[in-house]
């Protein structure tokens, strides 16, 4: 298995790089084309939040096993302003900058597991996971 893949997120082209790396990793580990697309789209959403709110951060892609099934774990980390009310931020339609505000809620629906930890003034870490069906 390849080691972790780190992608530094500073601008929009890094968003594309991160989701392409995610798709490649998912393809290697036997995810269907639809699952690959879901993973790539979810990565795109969280990477976009880094660019929009924190300006820079990183995406770490790793693999794991869950009851014999390969899984992809995506960690999106930044040291940006953080999110004041996570529950509200997850709600569809909420956005303090741009977009339809559906990024986080959408990413959660595209993945199997989604966890968001944020501290105001310190940053945000999103951890998402999806396993082969």
């Amino acid at each position: 298995m390849p080691a972790e893949v780190h992608v530094t997120i500073r601008d929009e082209t890094d968003i594309v790089t991160a989701r392409q790396r995610g798709r490649e990793l998912a393809a290697i580990h036997g995810f269907s084309k639809t699952e690959q697309t879901f993973i790539a789209t979810a990565i795109s959403e969280v990477a976009r939040n880094i660019v929009a709110y924190a300006r820079r951060g990183e995406i770490v892609l790793a693999t794991s096993q869950d009851q014999g099934r390969p899984c992809i774990v995506v960690v999106a980390r930044d040291e940006g302003p953080g999110i004041q009310d996570v529950e509200v931020a997850m709600r569809d339609g909420y956005s303090t900058s741009k977009g339809l505000g559906m990024g986080l809620g959408g990413a959660k629906r595209l993945m199997d597991a989604f966890d968001l930890i944020s501290a105001v003034g310190k940053g945000t870490t999103v951890t998402m996971k999806k396993c082969v069906r």
């Binding site: 690959q36 697309t37 879901f38 789209t41 959408g106 629906r109 595209l110």
Partner: peptide, 12 residues
């Protein structure tokens, strides 16, 4: 098709 599935999941 895969993009369409993802769009439906996103609700967009």
């Amino acid at each position: 098709p895969e993009v369409a599935f993802a769009m439906v999941q996103l609700g967009l």
